[in-house]
Nucleic acid binder design. Structure first.
Length: 317
DNA sequence: ACTCGAACCTGGAAGC
DNA sequence: TGCTTCCAGGTTCGAG
């Protein structure tokens, strides 16, 4: 399950290996993976073939490659379209040699112009099809700031991601702004963390990790949050993401742009998620014993320590 | 306008 | 052993 740090690793890989190359051929093996491209596979292929990849940009878990249009001559003109990618639950973007056998869940094959020492294919592989690709317009950002994390930041954002808030690793992200949005909401803090319109890039796992680190209950009403608590929570989110980025970034020097759901971080560094029945690490450190619990939440699960993440007075789910 | 649950999808795990 | 059911997850969409 790629989270923001894994998507950032993919972005860096694409930035290094795909930027500057021309798309020669596109093969859609499963149209469900481009269902967000409403005009269908033929149009998808037609828009991509001949285009040159200018950069790799990420906001939250949304990733896009701004394209130089074939018939646009001026190198100084801003790009109009981008190849948009979301990895969903199980998506992978792989840069591979054409000789490699097709993956079982290979969905889209993109053949790139030759580049010395770099494989020629960009492959989108996705088992559960929650992710997908689409060619989308680039629109101006509403605040005039950069669209997201990029090598050459532009005040443009893929239309499909325009409703997504900035993520906590974005230099333009405002924790104070998030606090204001919390106060204006009538919902629980975990639901707010997962709402990509308020803050992007946080999934179920990192939400639990950050809430545990910040000692907050998932059902804490956001309109009762004190500013110090919001800032503590934002710090915790950043910390979790940066540590995962450190762990995931280590394999980045290979030619393969790879997202692996079983990254070392998930295996070794989780303090809350999946730890039901096990002792709370912080309580243990402080000489107390409390057992982590799993509770249903939004048809999923939340993990917390009943001792240091106490149930609030007015629960909001 | 805001909030929340359903739906999408696959395969591994758990239950029978 | 083989079958069925459950569960995981991010995001969008529609109902309330």
């Amino acid at each position: 399950m790629p989270e923001l740090p894994e998507v950032e690793v993919v972005r860096r890989g694409l930035s290094t290996w795909v930027t500057g190359r021309r798309i020669e051929r596109v093969e859609v093996l499963d149209p469900r993976s481009i269902r967000r491209h409403l005009l269908g596979p033929d149009d998808f292929r037609g828009q991509l073939e001949g285009a040159v990849v200018l950069d790799a940009v990420r906001r939250g878990k949304f990733l896009w490659l701004p394209l130089a249009d074939v018939d646009e001559g001026g190198a100084d003109s801003l790009p109009h379209t981008a190849l948009m990618a979301h990895l969903g639950m199980s998506g992978q973007l792989l840069v591979e040699d054409p000789g490699q056998p097709d993956e079982k869940h290979l969905k889209v094959r993109i053949t790139l112009s030759d580049s010395p020492g770099v494989p020629a294919e960009l492959r989108f592989v996705d088992q559960r099809i929650f992710g997908g690709l689409a060619v989308v317009p680039l629109v101006a950002t509403d605040d005039g700031g950069p669209g997201g994390c990029a090598a050459k930041p532009l005040p443009l954002i893929a239309a499909e991601a325009a409703h997504i808030a900035r993520d906590p690793l974005d230099p333009s992200f405002s924790a104070a702004g998030l606090h204001e949005r919390f106060r204006a909401r009538r919902t629980g803090v975990k639901r707010a963390l997962l709402d990509q319109r308020l803050v992007s890039g946080i999934g179920n796992i990192y939400a639990d990790e950050a809430l545990w680190a910040a000692r907050l209950h998932y059902a804490r009403p956001t309109d009762t949050m004190r500013k110090a608590e919001t800032l503590r929570l934002v710090d915790a989110v950043r910390d979790v993401m940066l540590r995962a980025l450190d762990a995931g970034g280590t394999s980045f020097d290979s030619l393969y742009v790879n997202v692996n759901g079983a990254s070392g971080y998930f295996d070794r560094s989780l303090s809350a998620y999946g730890r039901a029945g096990q002792p709370c690490l912080r309580c243990a450190e402080e000489g107390r014993t409390s057992i982590m619990v799993r509770e249903p939440f939004m048809n999923r699960s939340s993990y917390r320590c009943p001792s240091c993440q106490r149930t609030p007075r007015n629960v909001r789910l």
